[in-house]
Design a protein around this nucleic acid. Structure first.
Lengths: 345, 345
DNA sequence: TTGAAAGCGCTAACAA
DNA sequence: TTGTTAGCGCTTTCAA
């Protein structure tokens, strides 16, 4: 009934024999390496096509490259990350590199496990999206394999970075809300106590940007900060806290769209109308922010562009390991939708 | 300034020397293979710990396994898939296997590219989530590497399957809506013309289940089917079509939650109230369905459980390649929320 | 129970 | 320009 056990995989030796050349020749053609005549290339390419040969990446990795780029991301559920991935895979599509992603990690231990697994599998380069591990660990990884760190500030000599100007993003939000007439504004941040991370993590910078901008408007007394986490749950709980307080804010700046979802849910449950009673602004401009019934005002980070830049930097470092590290910083913009309006009072 | 080029990776040879045993012995301990004395195991384990040795998976793959499971999924944006992944990684967490995912694929060409990339990287097993490729291609993949196909009906002798009873799921929806008093019910399906896929793809079965159930209620004349795609965009366009028709339905059954999002958006735009004017039911019970302001009635597929089952089947096949193929079918349940209510007329 | 030696498929150094 | 040869780090015979 069943088809016979498939014959053993076609190898470079089979191709060499079929094309009547050496295995070295085949290897060179595969890698577009120096020292092959057009005639030989044609012969080899034909043999590859005729035999349906595909190089075995694991074996290639023993000597050279595996042609694999590993992407680590903290949470597949956060709708901001697919944007970055789109940009990344699009830029890598025309190359020989294949992208493989680790499963969502939360916390340092999971991040270490995934990065180690990727290094052990001989990946040629890594893209770490919004990692939480201490910088020393990131640098250790980057010394082993070319690495681009996305969404984290603070430069390093050993890895490249791509990030968005979170201070400026937070200022866009405050300017917008103050411009509408709001004075009492709350911010839901991702709790951060580690001083080292205070200057590197986007969440900490958004909170800092919020503080600075409120001060610039001489509204430091009206700023209210709630520390939870960048999750829907965090937004939900943070809002519940805010609603119990005496002097209720007229606007909430959630540090991420996913947080804003929790904010909207809590407000909905408490029968507080948006933007009638309270305005809500998010960050990331995810697909769901644009979604009609939600229509969330949000800061756009150009996730796709971030992904493209990360790919460009990684390819550059793959081509030249000694190249000095680069820091790309992109500028955010504000997308105003229906969840923000002048305060009613 | 920079730390010196890190020393070459610790290999099995270093461990063997340090423990004063052969490399064979180390290899056996690593794989828990037969023929090692407790004393030797202790010695080797200690040397591994002292040197911080980690096996190089790419090299292991040349002879044996890479301890890597590849997961192919069509679309990272669909909030149903993370559930499956959670179940999968949780079940695999205690094993030596590491999960790596391909980037989202759409269409046969992209699926072929990703599965080939995974096979070329020596992955030990594959989990294909809702693949659209013809069964012959899936079987070819499965003959090369142990494979579990998730979310696709139709059994095969060479791969295991895990799926949900989509016919029953559609019936749950129709029974619920008819029970509320609805008669004129629309269904937005993912267009399917390939007859081979009509019996295998979940979308086709949900449509078939809808038809059968409407017939069972003697409402075949009241059933309205719109063919688009299982995306937010598809739900949006499908609903726009429905709204232009003369005899407007009082309820819409979207084939997936992500489709229901588009439905809600189009209804919102057209100022049609939900559930006042039209009830909406989704499928997948994603996180967003539970989200307060949306509160979508939906069919729950127990995605986490699907992932666990897939892991179990794959581990079984990894342990015994000759084992007969299994088909696991899970039963869906309906979660009633605020988007479904009796019709107003 | 243990270890010596061969070899997986490929690339890189070197020789012709 | 082309081919020969020696490994990469591991697993697997197979002999001791």
């Amino acid at each position: 009934m069943e088809s016979p056990a498939q014959p053993r995989r076609v190898t470079i030796v089979d191709v060499a024999r079929h094309a009547q050349v050496s295995t070295t020749a085949v290897s060179k053609v595969l890698r577009n390496a120096y020292g092959t005549s057009p005639k030989m290339r044609a012969k080899v390419r034909q043999a590859i096509a005729e035999l349906g040969y595909r190089p075995f990446a694991a074996a290639r990795g023993m000597r050279g490259q595996t042609y694999t780029i590993g992407v680590m991301l903290p949470d597949i559920r956060n709708p901001f990350f697919p944007e970055i991935l789109d940009g990344l895979t699009e830029a890598l599509d025309e190359t020989d590199y294949q992208v493989l992603m680790g499963p969502g990690c939360n916390g340092e231990a999971a991040e270490a496990r995934v990065t180690e697994a990727m290094i052990d599998r001989g990946m040629d380069g890594l893209v770490l999206i919004a990692p939480v591990s201490p910088r020393s660990h990131l640098e250790q990884v980057a010394r082993t394999v070319p690495t681009v760190v996305v969404g984290r500030h603070g430069q390093s000599a050993v890895y490249d970075t791509v990030s968005d100007d979170d201070i400026a993003g937070a200022a866009l939000v405050v300017d917008h809300l103050v411009g509408l007439g709001h004075r009492r504004i709350a911010h839901i941040e991702h709790a951060e106590t580690d001083p080292a991370r205070m200057v590197e993590m986007p969440n900490a910078l958004r909170a800092e940007g919020f503080r600075r901008s409120m001060r610039a408007h001489s509204l430091e007394g009206e700023a209210e900060i709630v520390s939870t986490t960048y999750t829907q749950e965090g937004g939900y709980r943070g809002t519940q806290q805010l609603l119990t307080r005496a002097d209720r804010p007229t606007a909430v700046f959630a540090g991420a769209d996913i947080v804003a979802m929790g904010v909207l849910e809590a407000l909905d449950e408490a029968r507080v109308s948006v933007p009638g009673d309270i305005s809500v602004v998010g960050y990331d401009n995810t697909t769901f922010a644009a979604f009609g019934p939600i229509s969330l005002t949000s800061v756009d980070q150009a996730g796709r562009h971030i992904g493209t830049e990360a790919a460009r930097l990684l390819l550059g470092r793959l081509a030249d390991r000694g190249k000095p590290s680069a820091q790309v910083k992109l500028s955010p913009s504000l997308v105003v939708r229906r969840t923000s309006a002048p305060p009613s009072t």
